[in-house]
């Protein structure tokens, strides 16, 4: 297992904690599942406990909960209008889950739930599926106006519609790959640089001197990764708001 210590991919391995198998499907409770549970329980507990006093003048911790609420609320109101507020619980849950999962990933030895594409893809399919279902349910076939921008010459219309359709279909992919790739690449880069420190450190005095460079890089990258962790959760939530806006107002 010594090679695993410096193997940058090892951190993404799933290990089965409680093997479960139903009808040939592997549904084991893995380390990923464990961290999903941890993310959900800690976030829910934080939000629940900090707001339990319902203080008129909020305590610091209550302010954090209120700020995250108002942050997502203003994001959704700006992105999808006041009608979009009916999706607030979903957007809030998505933002909080992704943010806390990303930040959990920054803790050493913690598993990053969002570094697996199936998780981010499931989230993006949830959003796009909601957009499509709600769009057709609310607007019927008018929802297809989404693909027909107004004021485009008839000659260019087939081309524009084709582009719009392709861009719509690529949304779940771009939405999921963006989050997944940022998390994956960030953690691999961190691990690689941290691995350099380890490898150079074993090479004697000169190596220890040389290890300072990747060490500084690791520290800087850690800061950057915290930023990315927040930013990607924010980007995911903002794009969710924009896509929901399409479902609410398909006529552009």
């Amino acid at each position: 297992m010594a090679t695993d210590k410096v193997d940058p991919i090892h951190q993404f391995n799933l290990t089965k904690l409680i093997p479960v198998e139903i009808g040939g499907l592997d549904l084991s409770f893995t380390n990923s599942s464990l961290f999903m549970v941890l993310v959900v329980v800690s976030t829910a507990a934080f939000l629940y406990l900090t707001t339990s006093t319902r203080g008129l003048v909020p305590s610091r911790m209550q302010s954090i909960s209120e700020m995250s609420y108002e942050f997502v609320a203003s994001m959704l109101r700006d992105g999808a209008g006041s009608q979009g507020m009916r999706f607030f619980p979903l957007v809030f849950s998505l933002f909080m889950f992704i943010l806390i999962a990303n930040l959990f990933g920054m803790v050493p030895y913690f598993f990053t739930v969002t570094s697996h594409i199936i998780v981010t893809f499931a989230f993006s399919m949830l959003v796009i599926g909601l957009v499509v279902v709600y769009g057709f349910w609310k607007h019927g076939l008018h929802f297809l106006n989404l693909f027909v921008p107004q004021g485009v010459p008839m000659l260019l219309m087939p081309l524009v519609v084709a582009i719009e359709v392709i861009s719509f279909l690529s949304r779940p992919i771009s939405l999921s790959v963006r989050l997944f790739a940022n998390m994956l690449a960030g953690h691999i880069t961190l691990k690689v640089f941290a691995g350099f420190v380890f490898s150079l450190g074993t090479l004697g005095a000169l190596g220890i001197g040389g290890a300072i460079l990747p060490l500084a890089m690791t520290v800087a990258l850690t800061g950057l990764e915290f930023l990315v962790a927040f930013l990607q959760a924010y980007v995911f939530a903002v794009l969710t708001c924009m896509y929901l806006n399409d479902a609410l107002h398909p006529g552009h």
Partner: peptide
């Protein structure tokens, strides 16, 4: 690991 489809079902379920 992220592309290992044998883990997809479990991850989707628990997610």
């Amino acid at each position: 690991p992220p592309f290992d489809s044998s883990t997809f079902a479990s991850q989707i379920l628990w997610l």
